[in-house]
């Protein structure tokens, strides 16, 4: 399985481009508060932004709110208070009801879930990858061509007619990524991308994210894996276990602050650094 180079992934010319060209900030959250079932806090007074073309890492312990923030950034859950703007427009449950707004937003933001089983829901790999472009109104011919391109790029052309239950964890992750890349989104959100993957698949995925970033994609990923942080991020936001953003900086700044890392439960005082 030799992956092909990335096909032409130029940004989609949709949504309010004029409004967002003026600034590098393509997504901005202000004072977000989110509670599950109106009871369990997941985000507390979170303000942050995402800049065009950057690699942004959301760091934090389990349950600190990283995944919830990614879901907010993908317009899947909506905060009880606070505002979220993307590409110059406010994103709310109400604004996403608008067909044009929804299609524009969905085509520009792609989300790779942590649980590939939730994301790979179609009966075959081909149908799974074709799902997004078809919902966006792309023709069957163009969709078929894109599916073939992405299958070759990810190196899973041999899995095309397989059913998801016949795939390994790593293969499912590749299919999930392919199903998002085929839509050619401008912003890619990854939830714990390297979690539960074998070293070879982890390295492949790290390389792919680097390659996508080099191609101009904006990458936002949630992780508590500090091993490859310097490769996967230009900027980091650190969540405390109280669901607040408590620090921001470059990977070098964050990794150098061991007190911060211990206090937010990203490392344990007894953890020994891995030999490089």
């Amino acid at each position: 399985m030799t992956p092909n180079p990335i096909p032409n992934l130029a940004p989609n010319p949709t949504l309010n481009l004029a409004a967002c060209e003026a600034t590098d900030v393509i997504m901005a959250c202000e004072g977000l508060n989110f509670r599950y079932l109106d009871r369990y806090p997941a985000l507390v007074d979170v303000s942050m932004d995402v800049r065009r073309g950057e690699k942004l890492a959301l760091l934090g312990a389990n349950g600190s709110g990283k995944s919830t923030l990614l879901k907010v950034l993908d317009g899947l859950v909506f905060p009880q208070t606070g505002t979220f703007r993307a590409f110059g427009s406010e994103v709310t449950e109400d604004t996403l009801e608008d067909e044009q707004m929804s299609a524009g937003f969905r085509s520009r933001v792609g989300f790779v879930f942590q649980n590939s089983d939730a994301q790979v829901f179609s009966p075959s790999v081909r149908e799974e990858i074709a799902f997004g472009p078809l919902q966006m109104g792309m023709s069957a011919d163009e969709t078929g061509q894109r599916v073939d391109d992405v299958l070759a790029m990810i190196g899973i052309a041999d899995l095309v007619d397989r059913a998801p239950f016949q795939l390994s964890g790593g293969q499912k992750k590749r299919v999930a990524i392919a199903s998002v890349l085929v839509m050619n989104p401008e912003v890619l959100l990854f939830d714990e991308p390297t979690a539960a993957l074998d070293p070879r698949t982890q390295e492949w995925l790290t390389g792919l994210i680097e390659e996508l970033a080099d191609a101009g994609k904006t990458i936002v990923h949630a992780t508590h894996d500090l091993e490859v942080l310097d490769r996967l991020a230009d900027r980091c936001l650190v969540f405390s276990e109280e669901h607040r953003i408590v620090a921001e900086g470059t990977p070098a700044d964050v990794l150098a602050d061991s007190d911060l890392l211990v206090s937010v439960n990203l490392v344990h005082p007894r953890t020994r650094p891995h030999p490089r």
Binding site: K71, D74, L76, E99, S102, A103, R106, S107, V109, G110, F111, F113, A118, Q119, F121, R126, E127, A130, F131, G132, L134, Q135, M136, G137, A140, T143, G144, S179, V180, M183
Partner: peptide, 16 residues
């Protein structure tokens, strides 16, 4: 959520 994220709005379009 995974379906919504990829543009599903209640009328699924599938490959034939």
């Amino acid at each position: 959520q995974a379906m919504t994220s990829r543009g599903y709005r209640g009328d699924a379009k599938t490959l034939q």
